[in-house]
Design a protein around this nucleic acid. Structure first.
Length: 203
DNA sequence: CCACGGATTGGCT
DNA sequence: GCCAATCCGTGGA
């Protein structure tokens, strides 16, 4: 067994510098382990949200009931509801009270694809039910992996929802851009994605 | 107390 | 490319 390759990321991984953790999360394996099923996929697109100096961050105006998990120490899942319809999942980063998180924007599906398709498409009339349309957006990721407000605050170092280690990507394998869908702090280039990966939400 | 708008999505002009 | 759907946390009055 290689020592780290398939091991769960530990608390220390998440408590480091925000942008380092954000880039290091690319290529890692996100896992939801149920009693009778397992869903997993490779993280291919992420965005960083800082606690200070970042007006687009939920944490910018301080702690509230909604965003309190963002102020926990790194390694917890922050799930919030938006646009009256969608959930978005974030990995909390840094030390307690820093208010930093990484939004998981897209995943390349690996295990449990049939169940993901049921989660995401069943009971809705969606024309494009292809694999490429399964998890290529933050709301889609939550739908496919069955994430909702019940999972807000889940500890990623435990056995239900966690992230498996993989080698860090090389610099030239990572694409960088402005973040998507925000109206403040729009110039920060804090979106990172795996270049040429077909499962990202957009170019 | 109430109006606003959002870290989105999907379908249509 | 454009826009409506749809809920509720947040913040101003």
């Amino acid at each position: 067994m290689s020592p780290n390759k398939f091991r769960k990321l530990k608390r220390e991984f998440y408590k480091r510098n925000l942008l380092e953790v954000t880039k290091n999360l690319l290529g890692k394996i996100f896992v939801v382990q149920g009693e009778h099923f397992k869903l997993s996929g490779k993280i291919v697109e992420v965005e960083a949200y800082h606690g200070e100096h970042d007006e687009a961050s939920h944490a910018f105006r301080g702690k509230t009931k909604r965003n309190e998990v963002m102020f926990w120490e790194g390694g917890y899942l922050y799930v919030y509801f938006t646009y009256g319809a969608h959930y978005c999942a974030n990995v909390v980063v840094g030390k307690k009270d820093e208010g930093q998180a990484v939004l998981i924007r897209a995943i390349e599906p690996m295990e449990g694809i049939d169940k993901m398709k049921i989660n995401r498409f069943e009971g809705r009339s969606i024309k494009d039910m292809s694999l490429l349309n399964l998890t290529n957006g933050p709301g889609k990721v939550c739908k496919a992996f069955g994430l909702n407000k019940m999972h807000n605050g889940i500890d990623l170092t435990k056995n239900h929802i966690f992230i498996l280690n993989q080698p860090n990507l090389k610099k030239n394998e990572i694409g960088i851009s402005r973040r998507i869908g925000i109206s403040k702090s729009v110039d920060l280039k804090w979106r990172f994605f795996i270049k040429d990966n077909p499962y990202i939400s957009r170019k």
